[in-house]
Computed example of a mutant assay.
Amino acid sequence: MPTIPPIDIETHGHAGLLLGSMWEPPTAPTWMAVLVHGYGEHIGRYQWVADRLTHDGAVVYGHDHVGHGRSVGERVIVEDFELLVDDLDLLVRRAHEEHPDLPLVLVGHSMGGLIAARYTQRHPDLLTATVLSGPVLGRWPQITDLLQHEEIPDVPISPSSLSRDEDVGEAYARDELVWHGPLQRPTIEAFAAELTTVNEGGRLTVPTLWMHGEDDRLVPIDGSRYGWEQIAASDGRAISYPEARHEIFHETNRDEVLDDLLAFVHEHV
């Protein structure tokens, strides 16, 4: 499958300029996808996902959150996730303005899954379907543990926890746009607050797919599954992958994962 290069795009979010990408399909698009990346990373790590979606007919959008990648802001500082949901809304509405007749699917990974779940609660009218990959939902014991410390321990994300594919971890470790330091207290507190907000935000009314690796050591599956059970749509679906780690889109069975995602999309688009 040939790689489709992205087009740089800009969004003026709550704190300033957000830089992102748009990928166009080789033929006229039949649907839209908006990708929402995870903590400490950037949208450029989703080239593989964009390639699969564009070759299925999607025009794909995504931007780097404030404090992430090429966007403005103090690195990985998030004081209120509702503001990141507001930023995402600007991108979703831009996609609808540029392709007003196409259905839109929201795809969020990890922290991006938390943002996507909240967006789906707040703006169901703008979405045809939502996909949550290894989402931070429900209970995340690491957050509770870190908040007990007067000084947050300097424990960055281990590249080996991302995927069984060693190349993924090595590329992550070399990536200068990735944050390789510890979590920051304001961000931890914002995570805790948003988890409560989503847990209490009501069930999703948009068809939603929850996908999770069963050997996810960053966002353990049990806590995320608990959160999914609190908000799952009546026509929602859950899929888990034995032995898969956190980044299921970059796992050794990535083709299976993207096949499952696209099969779900085709049911609703």
Results as ranks from 00 to 15, higher is better:
93 R>E: 09
70 R>L: 10
86 D>I: 01
78 V>F: 07
71 S>E: 03
58 A>C: 13
71 S>Q: 05
62 G>R: 04
93 R>S: 07
80 D>S: 07
81 F>I: 06
99 H>R: 12
100 P>Y: 09
79 E>K: 14
62 G>M: 09
34 V>R: 09
99 H>M: 04
116 A>M: 10
51 D>A: 08
105 V>G: 02
110 S>V: 13
115 I>C: 11
37 H>W: 09
38 G>W: 01
68 H>Q: 10
38 G>L: 07
41 E>D: 15
102 L>M: 14
40 G>E: 13
77 I>G: 00
105 V>Q: 08
100 P>A: 08
119 Y>G: 05
43 I>A: 03
62 G>C: 11
87 D>A: 00
65 H>T: 05
36 V>K: 00
85 V>R: 04
84 L>E: 04
59 V>S: 02
67 G>W: 09
76 V>L: 11
67 G>N: 13
86 D>H: 10
53 L>C: 01
79 E>W: 04
113 G>P: 01
111 M>V: 12
95 A>G: 03
48 W>Q: 15
73 G>V: 14
51 D>S: 12
103 P>L: 04
114 L>S: 06
55 H>N: 09
39 Y>V: 07
73 G>P: 14
79 E>N: 14
74 E>I: 02
96 H>R: 11
72 V>N: 14
50 A>P: 05
109 H>S: 09
